[in-house]
Amino acid sequence: MESVIHMPQLAPDEFLGIFVMATLVLVFGVGYAALITLSKMGFVPKKWQPFGYFFWILQAYSLYDLAQRVQSNPFTTKVLMVAMVIYLFAPHLYFYLIEESENRYDPVEDGQTTKSLKEA
């Protein structure tokens, strides 16, 4: 089987960038997911949403940069960018699931909760 991954020769001064970029991919990734979800839930003001998308852009850039640094071939880089587009939907799907499951399993009227009803 022909190998897709090419093993690059990395020089000592290339490693720091790789480790930093790998970290940033995940940090921005969780930042994006958290900001979008939290602002949709109302824990964070709505105006923070653009920052969430900004995090996504930074994440996509970091992943692209990481792919370049480890000398991924063009095909892999394209696949990674498609994956980033899919990830764009993740927090929205996440929020949709939270909301729908609440409606279905834990319907709450304004001002009172199932629990306080139970305890009363």
């Binding site: 991954i5 093993m7 990395l10 790789i18 790998a22 970290t23 480890v70 000398q71």
Partner: peptide, 10 residues
């Protein structure tokens, strides 16, 4: 994730 890619892991 730091070191999971084979290019880095080697």
């Amino acid at each position: 994730f730091f070191h999971t890619l084979p290019q880095v892991n080697i």
